[in-house]
């Protein structure tokens, strides 16, 4: 059974239909890259999966939790999927450690001491154990993004959604973040990532989804999608047509 089941999902912003019937099943442990031009609906799809956007038709199921617009369903869903953003979105008034501790304490009522140990472990996992007491504005972009990953991991999600998580980074900082993600992938985390890092997608992902005009235009293992693109649109996108 798949961990994430997306069935016939449609999403409109006014008259503009951005998702035109998306079907996608993600197995536990699978790493999937979503590529496509801007405006193809890839970020919207990702944001629908944890309910940051509502959907107009179709269903999204994550490990039995269904996407529904009420807070109870949304929270049940969000306990199963974590999300990492392009702009990090760390809480500026809290230290790195406190950023990671906050949600376990507030949402899961984990005692402070336990949450602190967990935060320390998660920060070490992303190579930032020594930055527990640093504030976000004292960290580089790459470090901030790694803290954001640690913060998501502290909630012990079944899957992580990554929304262009290296797009706001200076080129020399991209690798440190990708390394962390690569390690997570190797450890069996289910990952769904919108990305422009084609090389990374090719090396790490099990499947690549090419989205075009609100549809899954092509899908397959990276060697197929990158090596032998079938459609003209994908060939154009990859710059080989």
């Amino acid at each position: 059974m798949s961990l994430i089941a997306i069935t016939e999902v449609r999403k409109r912003f006014g008259d503009n239909e951005v998702l035109k019937g998306i079907n996608l099943d993600v197995a536990a442990g699978e790493v999937i890259a979503i590529i496509g031009k801007s405006g193809s609906g890839k970020s919207t799809l990702l944001r629908c999966i944890n309910g940051l956007e509502t959907i107009d038709e179709g269903t999204i199921l994550v490990a039995g939790a269904q996407l529904a617009p009420d807070e109870l369903h949304l929270r049940a869903l969000r306990l199963k999927v974590g999300m990492i953003f392009q702009s990090f979105n760390l809480f500026p008034h809290l230290t790195a450690g406190r950023n990671v501790m906050l949600s376990p304490m507030v949402v899961k009522k984990v005692p402070a001491k336990e949450a602190q140990a967990e935060a320390q472990a998660r920060l070490e996992q992303v190579g930032l154990g020594h930055k527990f007491d640093a504030y976000p504005d004292e960290l580089s972009g790459g470090q901030q993004q790694r803290v954001a990953i640690a913060r998501a991991l502290a909630m012990k999600p079944l899957a992580l959604l990554c929304d262009e998580i290296t797009s706001a980074l200076d080129p020399e900082l991209v690798n440190e973040v990708l390394q962390v993600v690569g390690k997570l992938a190797a450890e069996g985390m289910t990952l769904l990532m919108v990305t422009h890092e084609m090389r990374f997608a090719r090396e790490v992902c099990d499947r690549v989804v090419f989205m075009h005009q609100g549809r899954v235009h092509e899908i397959g293992p990276p060697e197929e999608v990158f090596g032998a693109p079938k459609t003209l649109e994908l060939q154009q996108f990859l710059g080989i047509a």
Partner: peptide, 22 residues
């Protein structure tokens, strides 16, 4: 910034928890 609400929401916080803590 909207991202602060979204970060709180994707960590499964309620609206009130986001308001108070974030």
């Amino acid at each position: 910034p909207r991202g602060q609400f979204e970060a709180g929401a994707s960590l499964a916080m309620t609206r009130l928890q986001i308001f108070r803590n974030v």
